[in-house]
Amino acid sequence: MRHLTAVFLLVLAALPDRAGVDRALDAHILPGFARFAVAAGALGEAARADCRASTLHAPFHAAFDAWMAVGDIRLGPSETGALSVAFWPDPRGFTRRALAGLIAARDPVARDPATFATVSIAARGLFALEMLIHDPEFARYDQGDYSCTLARAITADLAAQAQALERGWREEFAPLLRNAGSPGNATFLTPAEAMRALYTQVIASLEFTAGQRLGRPLGSFERPRPRLAEAWRSGRSLRNALLASESAHALATALADTPLPRSDAALARVREAAAAITDPAFQDITDPVARLRLEILQQAVRALKSAIEAEIGSRLGLTAGFNAQDGD
């Protein structure tokens, strides 16, 4: 009887972890990857119909929006798979050089979807497409040009990557998280490990947004670096920071088993700070007033991270572990 009681107590202790993991998967992660697969597929179809830059702007933004809901999750299939979907930061300009090299050589790899997946990750994914269709150096092409063929190759490859990520999460990795602690599960030995792994994604995402998405363009007061902003060519820098913050909050909410009033209020302040920024590409931050507004947004994102740590991390005894974006 004592043995059965001990087992029952252990099961009860694991229930909040299992429930939080299930909610995170069912309410946020799996639907997010499914939506990204649909949006990336629509982008590929749009490019097949008309691969000119201007016609791809709307489906590009739709696909990028969908990606931002799950793009900061660097776990399981996404630990390496996300790199070729979103190769950023790129401080050395590898994407520009990779695209220029393919175009100058009229490399036949763009005509073969199977082999295009082997090219440098700098020439693949959302940021390669952003440069191709939004940078004036690349975007002035017509139907029949090599760059049009390249746009089709990038979008087809992106759609294939999105499908692989969705399938990998749904069929392989989600079951490992759900069945943490089960016999034969060497990835997650306890439900608490699965919970901690997902919690780490929340904290790492907010750290990445504050330190990289906002910190890189801020640079220093003497030397701001607006051209280091994420997706500035397509005017998505602010939108990406806001979507990433909202996604981190949504994942935290799914993990939690109680209301998060402090985190909810912190997210509202993030949105308020974002609404005060006038240039969505952060290209105006050489102006002290614009810089201050971006710094306020950065502080608000960090405050959101602190709120989530207090309401989830401290209460559940969780600390963030290693994340694939650490050290970027």
Rank of each mutant, 00 (worst) to 15 (best):
W88G: 07
P280E: 12
R170G: 14
L83F: 08
A192M: 02
A105V: 01
F221E: 15
W169L: 06
W67P: 09
R213Q: 13
I103N: 07
L99S: 01
A63T: 14
P183T: 01
P91A: 08
A24S: 14
G32K: 10
C148L: 12
N323Q: 02
Y199Q: 03
A162I: 12
A24T: 08
M195P: 00
I133E: 04
A275D: 15
G32W: 08
R96E: 14
L318Q: 01
L176G: 03
T209H: 03
F33H: 15
D328H: 02
L304T: 00
W88C: 03
T187P: 00
S84F: 09
A244R: 14
A275L: 12
T258I: 03
L56P: 09
R152D: 07
T5P: 00
D264T: 15
P259G: 13
T55N: 14
E272T: 15
S263Q: 09
P217F: 11
T319R: 14
F282R: 10
L297T: 01
G317C: 02
S314A: 15
P31H: 12
I121T: 11
E45Q: 14
G321C: 01
Q163K: 14
L294H: 01
A117D: 09
A39H: 08
F8M: 12
Q283E: 15
A114Q: 13
M195S: 10
L292R: 12
R96V: 05
L294D: 01
V301T: 04
L316G: 00
Y199D: 04
A231Y: 02
F64T: 13
F127T: 14
G20D: 07
E193P: 02
R271N: 13
V70E: 10
A300R: 11
T95E: 05
A24F: 10
G20T: 02
A151P: 09
A39T: 08
D90T: 04
F282D: 11
V11C: 09
A122K: 05
F64A: 14
E272K: 11
T190A: 13
P226A: 12
V119S: 05
R178A: 09
P175N: 12
P224R: 02
A273G: 07
